[in-house]
């Protein structure tokens, strides 16, 4: 058994290039940890959600907090499946910590993550500008809107549903798309995204 750095020079091995779609362990953990951090945010947000009740439909302007990991994680990792994975982790964590939506949190996480994932898949995971992020965020909000309609607001008047939907879309663009871009930029400036694509 010998530890031998050989003296003979060999061709430089360049590890600067990155495999395209295979998830490194680091990718998995970073996406998971974004999911976990937002799972905790979800949990706190869920407890506060009841307090926002007096805001009525305007409350849905804050709805998109539930959708951030579905855009932030893929923006950082840029791997297929990141939106779905991070959103499901976040949902699972908030369900385990205790959520007013119980097991349904998982279902919500699935539809919200899958909708955003679909948009990123259509771009073949190549476009990461604001318009695509906004589109993914709106898709995710739309999925959440349909889900909530069926399960929680089945008999609510149509005009209120439409207002809710608009509020959710606005909040998706502002909180999720713009927010994720700003967060990713801050993280990059802090130097913790070294080794992830810009």
């Amino acid at each position: 058994m010998t530890l031998t750095p050989a003296s003979a020079p060999t061709a430089p091995f360049d590890a600067t290039s990155m495999a395209e779609t295979r998830w490194r362990t680091r990718d998995i953990l970073v996406a998971a940890v974004i999911g976990v951090a937002f799972g905790v945010v979800f949990w706190a947000w869920g407890l506060a959600w009841g307090l926002f009740a007096p805001l009525n439909a305007a409350r849905d302007l804050l709805y998109a907090v539930w959708l951030v990991p579905a855009v932030l994680a893929p923006l950082v990792i840029r791997k297929p499946g990141a939106a779905l994975f991070a959103e499901m982790v976040a949902a699972g964590v908030s369900a385990l910590l205790g959520s007013a939506w119980g097991v349904d949190t998982l279902l919500s996480g699935f539809v919200q993550g899958a909708a955003a994932e679909l948009i990123f898949a259509f771009t073949l995971y190549r476009l990461w500008g604001f318009p695509i992020l906004a589109l993914a965020a709106i898709a995710s909000a739309a999925a959440a809107w349909v889900h909530d309609w069926v399960l929680y607001y089945p008999d609510v008047a149509l005009d209120v549903q439409v207002i809710r939907g608009l509020a959710m879309a606005i909040s998706a663009v502002v909180i999720v798309a713009a927010g994720s871009l700003a967060l990713a930029r801050s993280l990059r400036r802090a130097g913790v995204l070294e080794g992830f694509p810009d």
Partner: peptide
């Protein structure tokens, strides 16, 4: 590097060769 995590988990430029027994850590 001896544990095979550099390069690999860390991006950068590697020169020379580091062997543990008859395993080359970078490849």
């Amino acid at each position: 590097a001896i544990a095979g995590l550099v390069p690999g988990d860390f991006l950068g430029t590697w020169t020379g060769s580091l062997r543990v027994g008859d395993l080359d850590t970078s490849s």
